[in-house]
Computed example of a mutant assay.
Amino acid sequence: MTDQDPHTEHTRKDDKHKASMQKQKAKVDARIAEAKTERGIALLLTGNGKGKSSSAFGMVMRALGYGQRVGVVQFIKGAQLSGEELYLRDHCPQVHFYQMGTGFTWNTQDRSGDISAAEQTWAEAEALLKNPDVALVVLDELTYMIAYQYLDEQRILQAIQNRPSAQSVVVTGRGGGSALQDIMDTVSDVKDVKHAFRAGIKARQGVDY
């Protein structure tokens, strides 16, 4: 019994790989051909894992790359300056950036004050969701406003559903309820497998905030 010729084995693997990729390309091309609807999408980034806001800001950079107008409204965050806020305020004047500014609710411990701040912040978000010139709206940590009942859920759902047809919206935060998920086009659940903070490692500037 002789060993198989290395050149023949290499060619066989190449042919097998090519056939597999051709089949995969045919499936992808078919799905692309089936997608005929041209409109903005509603995307929910939820789950217990890290990276939801980071993903949303990645889409902000994409939109800016195409010269699109962007609106960003951050709920919960704001007591400490974030890297994304510093960059967008200094380098991207075309981005409408608004933060609730109260910080985390477990720090404020002031329900009435948080509700008042949430309503003021939602007014900024609602205006963006009515503006057809804004291509992308990011509502960062909005889900907590629903979970804590700081804002009326139906008002939020209606504003997202009634936005301009070409506008896309990204909502981030844990939970948010089934009603919010039901109206979104895409829902991604970011899972928590391992986190440095639980090992006693401090949050890192430029990575965590």
Score class of each variant (00 low, 15 high):
P6K: 02
E124G: 01
T37L: 14
G206I: 03
G83S: 08
A166E: 13
G83F: 05
K52P: 05
G47Q: 06
D90N: 13
K194C: 09
Q24C: 00
R155V: 11
S165G: 04
G103Q: 07
V134G: 01
Q109R: 15
D90R: 15
Y209I: 04
S53Q: 06
K13T: 09
S188E: 02
G51I: 09
N107D: 15
E34T: 02
T143C: 14
V190G: 01
Y98L: 01
E126C: 02
G47C: 10
A199F: 10
Y150D: 09
K130G: 08
E153F: 03
G177P: 08
K130H: 10
A117G: 09
G47E: 03
H91S: 11
A63C: 13
G65N: 08
R69A: 07
D182N: 12
V187A: 13
L44Q: 08
K16L: 02
H91D: 09
A147R: 11
D14W: 07
L64F: 05
Y87P: 00
K130M: 09
N48G: 05
L81I: 10
R155G: 04
V73K: 04
M100C: 12
P6M: 00
G173H: 08
L136I: 10
K27S: 09
K194L: 07
K50G: 02
T186E: 14
G67Q: 12
T37N: 12
R39Y: 03
T46E: 07
L81Y: 09
V171T: 12
D14K: 13
A118Q: 04
V193I: 14
Q4T: 14
D29P: 01
Q22S: 07
M145A: 04
V187S: 13
G58D: 13
G206R: 11
A123E: 08
P6F: 00
A35Y: 01
Q74G: 01
S116P: 04
Q74P: 03
V60M: 12
K77F: 05
F75E: 03
T172F: 02
L86E: 11
D114K: 00
I201G: 01
E153T: 05
G101L: 08
I32D: 04
D90T: 12
D114F: 06
F104R: 07
E38A: 06
L88R: 00
Q94K: 05
E141Q: 07
T2M: 08
T11G: 03
K27H: 10
P6I: 00
P93V: 08
E85H: 10
L139P: 10
K202W: 05
K130F: 01
G78S: 10
E38P: 00
I41V: 15
L45V: 13
Y148S: 12
E85W: 12
G206L: 07
K194Q: 07
E85S: 08
L139R: 06
P6H: 02
L64H: 03
I146P: 14
Q80C: 07
G67T: 03
R89A: 13
K191R: 15
M184F: 06
A125W: 09
H10C: 09
Q154A: 04
R62Y: 13
